[in-house]
């Protein structure tokens, strides 16, 4: 299955990236390109919606970590929306739950963002 990556930016300047499909060694470059493209366009506050991701491996994790490094260089943020246990497990195994903010929904991420402002 191919990977679908779409994005939109909310009124409060948060760019939501919807990812659908399998993120692995073959498809991860597509997500990497999207993250690089967004940062190049000055979008530094990113929220990756993983709810429709069916598979994620370490290549995908590496792309997300790379994206986080890029936005941090601009005082930005990269957070995730994910409630799927099998995906969350991979973040736990690798210790990345300590690195990424992980939310239950886009609305929750937006609320926390408002609260932090």
């Amino acid at each position: 299955m191919d990977l679908k990556v779409n994005d939109y930016t909310t009124d409060d300047g948060l760019t939501v990236i919807n990812v659908e499909g399998e993120i692995d060694v073959y498809t991860a470059p597509k997500l990497r390109e999207k993250l690089i493209d967004l940062v190049n366009k000055g979008k530094f506050h990113l929220l990756v919606d993983m709810e429709k991701v069916e598979f994620l491996d370490s290549t995908g994790l590496g792309v997300l970590v790379g994206g986080l490094k890029r936005v941090r260089a601009h005082d930005g943020s990269l957070e995730l929306v994910c409630t799927q246990e099998r995906i969350l497990k991979i973040f736990r195994i690798t210790g990345l739950t300590k690195v990424f903010g992980i939310h239950d929904s886009i609305a929750e991420a937006q609320e926390k963002r408002k609260g932090a402002k």
Binding site: S58, G62, K69, I90, I93, T94, G95, L96, V99
Partner: peptide, 19 residues
């Protein structure tokens, strides 16, 4: 380890083996 900063350096390649 509680130390995850290595992941933000060049340690991402180690993720596969960790998984």
């Amino acid at each position: 380890s509680d130390e995850t900063d290595f992941l933000l350096d060049d340690g991402a390649a180690e993720l596969g083996l960790a998984v």
